[in-house]
Design a protein around this nucleic acid. Structure first.
Lengths: 342, 342
DNA sequence: CTGAAAGCGCTTACAG
DNA sequence: CTGAAAGCGCTTACAG
């Protein structure tokens, strides 16, 4: 037996207050014109009955659900819980609520469930480090549902995307390591399909090239802990290993540092300088004390929200693409160039 | 100018297929009776038009939103992203979707926004390590919205609650440390208002008492990193510090271990054995290699979902309270009693 | 300022 | 199996 949700309706309130149902509705619609007396009468009746307006019904008639769909994956990379938290709070402040979908699974699955999310009449879609099929993107477009990518840019540049400047970040790390007097540079890549991976590597290589240098060894960690560990083993279980390594995300970097120190007895930073990307909380833990590039999560989230609201207000708005500068956070996991802090 | 969501409606499909709107509805209602021919005709028209049923409208009339509200906090404790992820997936498998609310803020705020979440006609509410005012709980009850607490039990036992057996877990840790030959036991507490804190400590103390022992020193970390660091400093910057310490959550334990090793040059486990609670992913990282009690997140989440569905189906269902046994995970952060693995 | 009425996009008895 | 009709709980022109 399914329970009766014997909700108190506006009609009930109207009856008790001795007014019309429209009046009740107006009292609970900001900006509608009602007399003080009316408002008071209605509110009292509403309180007595425990009335609250049914936003489903409201949404149906206004065409505004005030729901934003969020597709997120990789919560084991601690950058994402942070994004989720900040995004949810920011959207909340704007009167929106977040409908989540976890996207661990296959891409096909994503399209399916995304469609279901759309069925809930979300007014927009935020995709955190996840991309969608062009077909579905087109369907969103057609349905007038704006999509904003955060921390991943799609090649087709007709979707809005908010990222940090991964290229610049990669280059900063290269410059820092070069200034530190390193000579052999390793790179442990993230998932090759990701724009973050591509851009960070390109920036890193550009920084090296600028000084006439190149990458000494490269392995792929796919943004996954186990893969990163294996990558580290391959790269460092040899005599001629690099004296500096950039690992494409902090999340992988911790795993790499653990392999170096615990398995291979390689000291950080004495034997090898290690740098990462993201500046997630554990990067600041004394054990890791990781030199990294901070992704400005706050600014990225605010911009995502702003972009989203813009597109919701104005369906003719052009896609907005922006990359925020991330700052180099110098800690102890990499040798610090002399005079760096002066 | 707010965009037109010129949605394709069942009416549009009906027109194109030359059938009634009811027929269209039936085709998209599992279990409704429609002929093969009808179904085919309608589906074709729907595909051509890109029709999908508006779940807002459906929810309004069926009284079932298929939405579950989730109130979560402390995403910096990595147990919660895990819960969020598993819960979202499990609920999804049952045809429900998750509406999130972050509850970092004050308790008052929680009540307000919870009310707003209820306005979305959620069919149930999961609260992860967050409690609500009794007044609001009563309102949920009245509205027929079941509430399930996960990883926190409220004193009033009329709310369903799914936890791990924190008392038993605390006792296991005491027994393990005693077997390891330790003599002075420290305890770094979580937030005193939390049932997890209370039960873990009580279990730990009971385990010690069983052997005629007691806690040597106690500090409060409030389940927060900074507070835990300070607690560790107070406890260990003295000559007569404990030779074993139980920190009430892994999340705090990492901070404590870092203080011990990096700041105070105290070796773990040679000088002090350290144990935690939760078994979040970093506990298995070689650097920490933490002995801890694993909270069975999978089982806790499944049970939460089951309880929720039960209560949704049957409004007369009694509150369900259960505590799962957590297993002791022995790693290297605490001295292992001789013969332990035999 | 207020009420009666239409309508948002569906589901579901009720007849046929 | 199918259609016409009522109704879910609201908002919002339209009159008054």
């Amino acid at each position: 037996m399914v329970k009766e949700r014997d909700n108190v309706t506006a009609q009930d309130v109207a009856q008790r207050a001795g007014v019309s149902q429209s009046a009740v509705s107006r009292v609970f619609t900001p900006g509608a014109s009602v007399s003080k007396k009316m408002a008071e009468k209605v509110r009292r009746a509403a309180d007595e009955l425990g009335y609250r307006t049914n936003v489903l019904a409201r949404s149906l008639i206004t065409g505004r659900s005030h729901l934003i769909g969020l597709i997120v994956a990789h919560l084991d990379n601690y950058f994402y819980p942070e994004v989720l938290e900040k995004l949810s709070n920011a959207l909340q402040d704007e009167g929106y609520r977040v409908l989540v979908f976890m996207a661990q699974q296959s891409a096909e699955n994503i399209d399916d469930v995304l469609a279901e999310i759309l069925d809930h009449q979300v007014e927009g879609l935020v995709m955190a480090s996840v991309t969608m099929s062009s077909e579905l993107a087109a369907r969103c477009q057609a349905a007038g549902v704006p999509v904003v990518l955060i921390n991943r840019s799609q090649d087709d540049d007709w979707l809005s995307a908010v990222t940090s400047d991964n290229f610049a970040g990669g280059r900063k790390l290269a410059e820092f390591l070069i200034a530190g007097g390193h000579e052999h540079f390793g790179y442990i890549a993230g998932w090759e399909g990701a724009s973050t991976q591509r851009d960070r590597e390109a920036g890193f290589r550009a920084g090296l090239r600028q000084a006439g240098l190149d990458i000494h060894s490269r392995e792929v960690g796919n943004y996954r802990v186990e893969a990163a560990q294996e990558a580290a083993r391959r790269m460092f279980a040899r005599g001629d290993h690099p004296d500096a390594v950039f690992v494409a995300s902090d999340h992988m970097t911790f795993a790499v540092m653990d392999v170096l120190r615990v398995e291979l007895s390689i000291r950080v930073p004495e034997d090898v300088s290690v740098v990462g990307y993201d500046d997630v909380p554990p990067a600041a833990w004394p054990t890791y004390n990781l030199t990294t590039v901070r992704q400005p999560a706050n600014r990225m989230v605010s911009e995502t929200v702003r972009t989203m609201l813009n597109q919701i207000e104005d369906s003719t708005a052009k896609p907005h693409r922006i990359a925020f500068d991330g700052s180099l956070i110098v800690r102890g996991s990499a040798r610090v160039p002399e005079g760096w802090f002066e």
